[in-house]
């Protein structure tokens, strides 16, 4: 089993919902982003192409971050998900340096609030119970492993059943992101990648990403 994504760029309109879905799902503190939408353009007026790429940790099969981590805090699960054990991370930032996609962040300011200088919102407060974050450790997209694990335990299939599928995938209003098992040759995601010629983002970084993009 190796979880992966296929992202249809043609569908994506750059609405940033995937970013907010992740922020809400994991109660991410201000200025912490596990995924992003990169926006740019190529060409010269009037022949211009706007570029919109929603990016997150590629859950690389050959992850640079895991290799450099001295503590083993950053690790890879059997299903390919790369995650950080908050209790082990010393905050050396080597993994942040090493990720060519720059998909890791350090959570530093534990006093940061969404409404600075005002009271914490109820949403922020409950977040500290449901999904606490340790300051001083590195964070990243974990492919919503908690959703996947609880879902599988409840007999659901990630990528098919909403409850077992990553938050950013199910929240996308244009259904630009597909999720599924890359190791299963019959999975929907493999079909899409094959039919629509999916390719990893910057394969030259040589980390064997589990996220494929479709132009």
């Amino acid at each position: 089993m190796r979880w992966g994504m296929a992202i249809e760029l043609k569908r994506c309109v750059g609405c940033y919902e995937c970013v907010l879905a992740c922020k809400a799902e994991h109660f991410l503190p201000p200025d912490i982003f596990w995924n992003r939408v990169l926006i740019g353009e190529t060409g010269k007026y009037p022949t211009v192409t706007k570029l919109i790429y929603n990016v997150r940790c590629n859950q690389c099969a050959d992850p640079a971050c895991v290799k450099v981590c001295p503590t083993g805090a950053t690790q890879q699960r059997e299903d390919g998900i790369v995650w950080v054990d908050e209790d082990k991370c010393v905050g050396c930032r080597y993994c942040m340096i090493a990720c060519p996609y720059q998909m890791r962040m350090m959570y530093e300011d534990e006093n940061a609030q969404y409404f600075p200088g005002q009271e914490l919102t109820e949403h922020e407060k409950i977040g500290k119970e449901l999904y606490p974050h340790q300051p001083g450790v590195v964070q990243k997209c974990v492919f919503c492993k908690e959703r996947i694990d609880a879902g599988i335990e409840a007999g659901l299939t990630p990528g098919v059943d909403r409850e077992a599928t990553p938050a950013c995938v199910i929240s996308c209003p244009t259904k630009a992101i597909h999720f599924g098992d890359l190791d299963d040759p019959n999975s929907e995601i493999n079909r899409i990648i094959k039919e629509k010629h999916g390719h990893p983002f910057h394969p030259e970084f040589d980390t064997d990403p589990s996220i494929y993009y479709i132009d």
Binding site: V68, K88, V90, M106, V137
Partner: peptide, 25 residues
């Protein structure tokens, strides 16, 4: 001083197989 969790620094010996920081330590 650079680490945010210096008290856990003993963990930095864990992965010399792949990590230069672990090796260095």
């Amino acid at each position: 001083a650079h680490l945010s969790h210096p008290f856990r620094s003993w963990r930095m010996f864990m992965k010399p197989g792949t990590s230069w920081i672990a090796r260095g330590f």
